[in-house]
Simulated assay, not measured.
Amino acid sequence: MAVKENEATKGKTRPISNIEYVGMSLIALTLIILFVKPEIIGGSFDAMLKKAVGPVVDVYLTGTLGTAIILSVMTGRILERLGFTDALVRIFTPLAKVMKITPLIIVPAIYNILGDINASGRITGPALKKAGATKDEQKIAVATMFQSQQSFSTFMLGLVAFASKGIWAFPIVIIGILLPVVIVPFILSKTLYRDVQYKDISEMPSFTPGTPLFTTLINGAREGAELMFLLLIPAVVVVFAIIGLLEYMGIWAPIESAMSAFLSALSIDPVTGMQSILVAPTLAMNTLVETIGTMPTRFAIGSFILAASGLPLQIPFAQIPAVWSQSSDLSGSEAMQAALVGLVIRVLSAFALAWILTPMV
């Protein structure tokens, strides 16, 4: 039989796939460029390199941002070890009972505040399933997670920026970060995601780790370094390299102009707003520390609230679908849709709260 199959397939070749046609087109295009204007290839790479090396070296490696990230993640882990997560869940429980929704939906947002969006899914996803949370409640948890920053360093650097300009941060934190974590679940449970029901606190696991305090410090610092080197710096290189290439091609300027106009209309500083959306909110808040004195208070508040979210864009479009589809009852598309709902709410709230909070600070 094997001999007959070999004879039947002898002389036949594998059909060319679509991606191979793409590859051959690229080869042809490369040869044409090498013949007509070979400096385009080297110039493109040089433009990407020059655009990316500045933020990576000057901001993360030799600047203060890298150390700030490590310290902030370490601080977040200390707070978690001291019962911060469980305390917030306990405080939220009476409100959850009134809203007739499981208190566990707040936990992803708390983990976001402490700077671990992966833990938000990997830890609370299975906990939500175990507690019998409905799909709608799990979607609310994802959308609510977008109402708080996904890095504790974003929060800390924002406070540093406000202090440097003499802006009173208390109402911004309470109304801009903590209040939406309560209000958004209530609104969504009455509109988009209505299949909700209260779960008693006795059904919840403890989210306070039992590791020794010194071990918590060391692990937190190591986690901060991993965050910087394995996630933030690669993201910065990718995004700034693409921007550098688009600049070299002459098409980035109109894109940047359109995004700047859109963000300005929303009372968000264009520079830090684009950094939050495309690169990392941590980088945006580090920039805000340096530039807050040159912008209206309203723009600084809008930028901080936008940064206090699940941005940049690779998180709702890639990271959240991958993590939540594995650890919860949600599919990748369901998790992405819930994340985008939360992102839209966050953008609109950044615009509204920038106007509301400015007279208070």
Rank of each mutant, 00 (worst) to 15 (best):
F299A: 13
I106F: 12
M228F: 01
L263K: 14
N112A: 14
S44H: 00
P254E: 02
E334N: 11
A109G: 03
F186L: 15
P212S: 04
D136E: 06
A300V: 00
V142F: 12
T216Y: 11
A338F: 10
F146T: 05
K129L: 15
L114Q: 08
P108E: 02
S189F: 15
V59D: 01
P270Y: 02
S17T: 08
L34A: 08
P316S: 03
A28L: 15
L230G: 15
D329K: 12
P171K: 12
I40A: 05
G342V: 00
S331H: 06
F162S: 08
N219P: 03
M1V: 04
K199L: 11
A352F: 13
T93K: 08
N112S: 11
I315D: 03
M285W: 08
L114S: 01
A322E: 03
V237A: 13
F84N: 06
S120L: 02
V344Q: 07
I117A: 12
L340I: 15
A161T: 04
A28E: 14
K130T: 04
F152K: 11
V347L: 14
Q138R: 04
M274Y: 04
A87D: 00
S260V: 08
P270D: 02
K139D: 08
T282P: 07
M249Y: 04
S260L: 12
V160H: 05
L246W: 11
M145N: 13
F240T: 15
V56M: 11
E223V: 00
V98R: 13
I19A: 14
S153F: 03
N18Q: 06
L159N: 11
I106T: 09
M274T: 09
I356V: 14
A225M: 14
I117L: 01
L353N: 10
I356N: 04
R298V: 14
A141D: 06
E290G: 03
T358A: 15
V98P: 09
E203F: 00
P312S: 10
G273M: 06
T13P: 02
V53R: 10
W168M: 04
F35Y: 14
A52G: 02
M156E: 05
L82A: 12
F186P: 01
P234G: 11
W324N: 10
Y248E: 06
M156I: 15
S276H: 05
G302K: 08
K10P: 03
A109W: 08
I356T: 07
G176H: 06
V236K: 09
L49S: 02
P316I: 01
G115V: 08
S327G: 04
P205V: 06
L330E: 07
T287K: 03
F229Y: 07
